[in-house]
Amino acid sequence: MDSDLDDDGDDLRYGIDEEYDYPDSRPTVILMGHKRSGKTSIRKVVFQKMSPNETMFVESTARITRDTICSSFINFETIEFPGQMCPFDDSLDPIGIFQKCEALLFIIDAQAELQEPIATLVEYFCRAYKINPNIKFEVFVHKADGLTEEARVETKFNIYHQVKETIKDQIEVDLQVTYHLTSIYDHSIFEAFSKVVQNLVKQLPTLERLLDVFNQSSKVTKSFLFDILSKIYIATDSEPVEMNIYELCCDMIDVTLDLSSIYGVGENGANYDENSQAIIRLKSEQVMYLRQVNKHLALVFIMKEDGNEKVGFIDHNFGVFKQGIEQVFRVKNRGLHF
């Protein structure tokens, strides 16, 4: 089921987007990697809701392609480079591209030969660093599902070492690089993306504090602020993240959007609007809530159902939280105009 959220040209505007939604204020992420490393599949699975088994049909990208995803909270750009082309060729405006870039993701196929991709990675990272030293460098050791637990750790360690040493040799800087083991067949790709994006959200501490306050006042055990299109969480409270709770929250977003695209699609094709919400009760006396925060974001939270918490109060607390979020983003966007 395709989500209709890709259509960004609609007139449905509300919440903080109304006056303050400038694409420049959203995190910009660039994705690179060798041929067949899984870039296109990642993009399709994370941002276009393709089911992982369908990625078999994804054809390899033959020319340089640039793709921008703008219907998500994250300003996400993938630039695919076939082997022989270099992204730092002058005709491609590397300076323009990498000055805007906040995080550079390099995808390595963990099941394929590693030496060549590592060499490319080091070269690109060094050159990007020279253009913009503020870029966050991230490596996805991808297709990890095909490896044993031991092999995963080993592969990641090998790559880490080689990259560290070679970069030091080349530019004499101890570049900070973060590594993630990922696979499109489970939630690890979403989890990794979440970490990358959180690294870029400057208001993260404020958002965390807001979520903590919300949790305490409503007896909530865990809450996530999700980018609804990609199921990346841009913030969560200060409690540790339990993977299975995060996965269930992701699945709840799927249920909400999938049912909405069957029964609640308006003339403009949107299935997610200012009244979007969901409540799921589990027999273990837990309740999950999903509430729309703005066009791109939703708050998903889980709490014990002990009968003392009145829905009306949760509604009220959520209203206060939503106002808080609006203020957080408003301040940031105003700042850009000075």
Binding site: V311, F313, G319
Partner: peptide, 11 residues
């Protein structure tokens, strides 16, 4: 939302 909240308060 407001009518929800009032109901919860009155209860």
């Amino acid at each position: 939302v407001a009518s929800n909240v009032s109901a919860a308060l009155l209860a």
